[in-house]
Simulated scan of single mutants.
Amino acid sequence: TRTDPECRLCRWAYAKQYGLGWNHAQQIVTEPSLSRRLCSSDTNGLVSEPFDEQWFMINNDKGVRSAIMKPGKDDEMNCMEASVKGSITTPTFQVERTITHHDGVLDFKISSTSVLDAEYESGDLVLRLRFSTMHNPDGAYFSNIHTMLDNQPNYGALMTSGMIQDERSKVTVMTNWETSIVSQKEGTIQVVLRSGKDADNAHVEEFTIRVITEDRNVLHDKMTEATISSFAKLMMMDFVGPLETYYVAEAE
């Protein structure tokens, strides 16, 4: 679809379609408040933009948490790639994952997880996304908003979703398995990947997480209610029921 830069309504529609910002005073499309660049640390490969990618484990029986694996504040960053792939290895756990940026969203593909410390064998492996510029009051969040999609079967038993928002931005996180997605403090949203209650998750061939970032519509969206924009709806529908799936065989 072509958008005429002289057409104000076309510009507004373009911004809404792709989850971009909209300057009401100047009637122009702007960059979203949350960056859509994918940047990672050259030191440990963890994502540092648009969020800090943080990993840790929790021993629920003893109430202890492992050291948090996260990008360093002074690390050199690589922002030139559309995807980040690698192993996250600590004395406690190991994760193999690929993160890809496309169409204004970020997708995690987690091919394997393993616990290396017997103390945490029955614990939870947690991925926390920290958005340094987001300020959702008191860690407020909305659960399972994918169930608000129109004309869709109930995916509640197959996936989980959660959303946080502040005055400027929204972040929606979706998974392809049933788990816990919460915001325990301002600017964060976290996903339990490997639960001590179901350590193997044998029914999940590959953990997939979608992260949707967009500007909040300050004129129509209430802070106390969850609403789904046209952009978020499109990206959520693509996640829960893609039109086509492609399988690419790797050369041996």
Rank of each mutant, 00 (worst) to 15 (best):
M134R: 01
V84D: 05
N154A: 10
T98R: 14
V115R: 01
I145T: 07
I99D: 02
S87K: 15
N144C: 13
K109W: 02
D117Y: 06
E119I: 04
E121W: 00
E121S: 13
S180A: 14
T147K: 15
G104K: 10
V95D: 00
E121K: 10
S161I: 01
D150N: 04
E121R: 11
S161D: 05
Y120A: 05
Y141V: 01
P91I: 11
T179H: 03
V173K: 02
I181G: 01
D166P: 07
F131L: 05
D107Y: 03
I145P: 05
L127S: 08
T98Q: 15
H135C: 02
E121H: 06
Q94T: 12
Q165L: 07
S114V: 10
S132A: 14
S111I: 04
K170F: 01
D103Q: 06
S161K: 05
G162L: 09
S143K: 13
G123M: 06
T92G: 00
R97G: 03
R130F: 14
S161G: 10
D150W: 03
N136T: 06
G104R: 10
Q165I: 07
E96C: 10
D103F: 06
K109V: 10
L116H: 12
L125T: 02
I189N: 03
M148E: 12
F108I: 03
Q165C: 04
K170I: 11
F93T: 00
A140C: 12
F93Q: 02
V84R: 10
N136F: 06
T147E: 13
S161W: 08
N144S: 12
T90P: 00
H135E: 13
